[in-house]
Amino acid sequence: MVDQSLKIFATKLPREWTDEQVREYFSAQAAVLEVSVFKDGGKSLGCAYIKFQSKTEAEEVIKNLSKEVISNKKIKLRWADGEAERLKIDRAPLPKPARSKYIQYTSSDGRPYYYNTETGLTQWEEPIEMAQPIKTPSAPQGPPGCNLFLFHLPIEWNEQDLIKYFSPFGNVISARIMHEKESGRSKGFGFISYDSKISAVNAVKMMNGYQVLGKRLKVEIKKGEYLPEYVLYPSYQPNPL
């Protein structure tokens, strides 16, 4: 059985660091097997996955380096989530029932949710049996302030899932999930672009912290695209459920 507790996730790393520099830094504490720096357009996002030979070594690294300060920033280390999901064998598609037991409703802010006529429960996630194929937009990105960075995405998601969950807030012109080159597996982060700043603001307000498939999404305006309108919107508290 493969030990899933060998990889940690590091944030607040210097953005100028390359994969080799990250490897060199952590190798001073333990043997590093793998390094994967998150990048956008070839530029580091200041976070990375680091894999070690054993759980004990990984635990020591988290213990010894969690308070280290580099370039006036205290790096943050934690266990990488979703490692078991990354190694699952691809699941066969679920058959769609002839008749759906779900009814779709829309909340006061325009967001769809679903009522199960058999259990009497409601949910935000669109039921698999109701899902329809979605064409993925191909534009590279939107205007400044319209592009979102998404982290902690479910490993099972693809670009169509991004469109399904983020299109209620506006016209999505680009959706990307970053993948590992060799394995093709999702890295757990990606990007969404709208043609409107208001759409981007609403998506952050409503989807940041949203829980799905055991994950809590992190959604924020892409770095360097300051959006002052964001502070004009109050916190969102869903009430249909």
Rank of each mutant, 00 (worst) to 15 (best):
N171R: 14
S107K: 04
G214T: 11
P143C: 04
M178N: 09
P238H: 04
K96L: 06
E225M: 09
E220S: 15
I192F: 01
Q29D: 08
Y210N: 04
S5V: 05
P127R: 02
E180S: 03
K197C: 09
K63L: 06
A131F: 01
K74L: 03
Y233P: 02
S138V: 08
K223M: 09
V32P: 10
G82Q: 02
V61L: 01
Y105T: 07
V61K: 04
W157T: 05
P228I: 11
S196Q: 15
E83C: 06
G170Y: 00
K12H: 15
A48Y: 07
C146N: 06
P133V: 01
V212Q: 02
Y102G: 04
G46C: 05
L148W: 06
Y210R: 14
S174W: 02
E68H: 15
T18G: 10
G190M: 06
L217D: 14
I8E: 09
T117S: 08
Y210E: 07
D161R: 15
F191N: 06
D90M: 07
A98F: 10
S5I: 01
D109N: 08
Q237I: 10
E68T: 12
H152N: 15
Y105W: 03
N239R: 13
P133S: 05
G41P: 03
A30S: 15
Q141Y: 08
K55Y: 02
P228M: 12
S66K: 15
P228L: 12
S108T: 11
P240M: 07
L153D: 07
T136G: 01
N208S: 10
K205P: 04
L148M: 05
K88H: 08
V69N: 12
R23N: 04
E24R: 00
E182N: 13
S71Q: 15
K43Q: 13
E156D: 12
Q123W: 08
Y165H: 14
A203Y: 14
N171I: 03
E220Q: 14
W79M: 02
E60I: 05
F166T: 07
R111K: 11
W79Q: 00
F149V: 03
R23P: 03
G46M: 04
P140Y: 07
K218G: 14
V172K: 00
F9L: 13
Y25K: 07
E225I: 02
L45D: 00
R15K: 15
I221K: 15
D81E: 02
L87V: 12
R185D: 06
W157D: 06
R23C: 03
Y49A: 01
S108N: 12
P154N: 09
S36I: 09
P144A: 09
S199R: 09
D195M: 03
S183K: 11
G145E: 05
D161K: 14
Y102D: 05
R176G: 01
V35K: 00
H179W: 04
L217F: 13
L87K: 13
P154S: 08
L13K: 07
E118D: 14
P127A: 08
P154Y: 12
R99D: 09
I173G: 02
E229V: 13
L77T: 09
N72V: 10
G42P: 03
P137G: 05
L150F: 08
E126V: 11
I155M: 14
Q21Y: 04
V212S: 10
A175P: 13
V172E: 01
K67N: 10
S36N: 11
S100Q: 06
V22R: 10
G190D: 08
S66F: 09
N147E: 13
G110F: 15
A175F: 14
A92Q: 13
W157I: 05
Q160Y: 06
M130Y: 07
